[in-house]
């Protein structure tokens, strides 16, 4: 299995069996669906509080193409992107850590024909499915509140999934290095600044030029830029760069995960 992993791209090897792990997670969440549903409300509260509440103080902001945009329409796609990030991070860090180290779920799984690659792909796939549910819900709310101004907004769904994929893979990669629960503070230390400073609440132009460059290196910035471009109809080649950047980071994360998991699980 080890040698196979290094030759064939992971998702293609593992896809069919990894589905079984997704099945397990669906079974678990069927009983605690409230937890699943509650995840949808967090970005909604933020949209209402920040988008409309603070928006009433801000008025309008210049959109990506200079058109005046209501503040809520500006913040909403950013909330969609960051909730995709938060959901994926939660699923791929805390959840995976506990299954790995406390519940020993994977130890049992690995006694079956499933291998570490199946586990990695299965968990990332599950995080994506869950994230896309939230994305559909959130986009519907945006449409209902009149915060979408382009039919391209439909593509915000796969875009949110891409953001989820990137962060799920990176999150799992980080988790594979974690030793104690206290190490997870580091994850907050990364995701909170990302959430606050990735062009989520105000345009990139608010930063001095050097800082702008730094912000542009972060994955969430590209997620926000991508989804905002699609929901506000400000299309351009920049969106392709965003998508490519996210995809590349995600694949790097996945490559790390499959190696590390093998080390952690097959001792």
């Amino acid at each position: 299995m080890g040698s196979l992993l290094r030759i064939a791209p992971l998702p293609f090897v593992a896809a069919p069996r990894a589905g079984r792990l997704v099945e397990r997670n669906i079974l678990v969440y069927r009983r605690i669906w409230l937890v699943l549903v509650s995840g949808f409300f967090e970005p909604l509260f933020y949209l209402l509080g920040i988008g409309f509440g603070i928006g009433s103080l801000v008025g309008t902001v210049p959109g990506l193409e200079g058109q005046a945009l209501s503040y809520a329409a500006f913040v909403a796609p950013a909330m969609m992107a960051s909730s995709a990030m938060n959901g994926a991070i939660y699923d791929s860090t805390f959840n995976v850590f506990f299954k790995l180290n406390y519940d020993k779920v994977y130890d049992a799984v690995l006694a079956t024909p499933l291998g570490p690659a199946d586990v990695a792909v299965g968990e990332v796939a599950w995080a994506l499915m869950r994230g896309s549910l939230y994305a559909v819900g959130f986009l519907s709310v945006m449409i209902a509140l009149g915060l979408v101004s382009s039919p391209w907004a439909v593509l915000a769904l796969p875009a949110a999934m891409l953001v989820g994929f990137t962060f799920a893979a990176l999150g799992m990669a980080a988790t594979s290095f974690m030793r104690t629960v206290q190490d997870f503070d580091l994850i907050f230390l990364v995701t909170l600044p990302l959430f606050l400073f990735s062009g989520t609440f105000y345009p990139l132009s608010a930063y001095p030029p050097e800082l702008q460059l730094a912000v542009q290196l972060t994955p969430l910035y590209h997620g926000v830029d991508l989804i905002r471009g699609l929901t506000t109809g400000a299309l351009g080649p920049g969106l392709l760069v965003d998508a490519a950047y996210l995809a590349a980071l995600g694949l790097v994360g996945l490559a790390i995960v499959s190696r590390r998991l093998e080390k952690l699980l097959l001792k």
Binding site: R24, L27, V28, D103, K104, V105, D107, A108, A111
Partner: peptide
């Protein structure tokens, strides 16, 4: 069939 030393039952199921 594997019965490990400590039970690895899925507590969420």
């Amino acid at each position: 069939g594997v019965v490990p030393q400590s039970d690895t039952l899925d507590l969420e199921l």
